[in-house]
Design a protein around this nucleic acid. Structure first.
Length: 274
DNA sequence: TGCCAGGTGCTGG
DNA sequence: CCAGCACATGGC
């Protein structure tokens, strides 16, 4: 058993070979987390989890166990996925380093807005922007942290306000994107196959091929594990593969997960692919 | 200091 | 359809 819900506010995770909270937090799919003594505080939408590492298990104390059970994709056996990916020799070092990463089931609106801001930006800088966005426009939670703004709250933010958050030239995209999100039925989108979903998401201002792939992979409604975002880091890593290796990897049904292991090793650990 | 960052929209060919 | 370019701004 990987994990179990102990009560309405507590999840215990036992199998650390497929749940490495440090690697998950630093895998570039979630940004509003805060390191604290022995663990992290994580804010997703209006939900908050305090995560503690003990010697034989990880404890997730949150406002809603069911929400975070789904968020951390705890039904899925990632060790089985890793066994399938291990056919790629050059992925193994990345799996050794980041094998405890899971693909999070993030919120649609939060992911779209966050990754529009991430474009041509660096993680440290845009994380500050995201936290400032939450502090100024999101609800204050009981514990003093701030929720990510709701779509309604986002719709009230002007271009010049986005600029004061440090969104720069993306500010205009964000205003337009919020309006488009308000017209979007994400349940309907979730029924679409990859090519049609990609086409619809790409209509959102600020969403190009890379951000689109992130939304398809990281948004819980979609969870397209075969879609691999290629950013500047992954581009460099992929250049170390042969054409045949690269094509095989990118067309694998778990390409998105493989990419995530590589991103962690290459971008966060600053290690070569092999 | 100049290059870079989980790129995208726009324009001209 | 595709190559080339502008774009805000802080981190390093």
């Amino acid at each position: 058993m990987t994990a179990k819900i102990t009560d309405a506010k507590t999840i215990e995770v036992y199998d650390r070979s497929q749940f490495d909270v440090d690697a998950i937090m630093h895998s570039g799919q979630v940004f509003r987390y805060f390191e604290r003594e022995g663990g992290y505080r994580l804010i997703v939408g209006k939900n908050c989890a305090n995560i503690f590492k003990s010697e034989n298990k990880i404890i997730i104390k949150s406002n809603d166990s069911a929400y975070f059970w789904n968020y951390f994709d705890l039904e899925t056996d990632y060790n089985a996925i890793k066994r399938e990916l291990s056919v790629f020799d050059k992925i193994r070092p990345s799996m050794d380093a980041g094998g405890g990463i899971r693909i999070l089931r993030s919120d649609f609106v939060e992911i779209v807005i966050s990754f529009i801001i991430s474009a041509n930006n660096n993680i440290k800088r845009f994380t500050k922007t995201l936290n400032l966005l939450a502090e100024r426009y999101g609800d204050r939670l009981e514990n003093g942290s701030y929720a990510f703004p709701s779509l309604e709250q986002l719709l009230a933010i002007t271009e010049s306000e986005y600029k004061t958050l440090g969104c720069g030239y993306r500010s205009a995209y964000l205003v337009k994107a919020a309006k488009q999100l308000a017209e979007t039925d994400r349940q309907k989108l979730a029924e679409l196959p990859n090519d049609l979903l990609r086409k619809k998401l790409s209509e959102i201002c600020g969403v190009g091929p890379k951000v689109c792939a992130c939304v398809m992979l990281f948004c819980g409604d979609f969870h397209r594990l075969d879609v691999a975002p290629v950013d500047t880091w992954i581009g460099k890593a992929l250049n170390q593969l042969t054409d045949i290796e690269r094509t095989a990897l990118l067309s694998h049904k778990y390409a998105g997960i493989a990419q995530q292991y590589m991103f962690y090793r290459f971008q966060y650990l600053h290690m070569e692919l092999e």
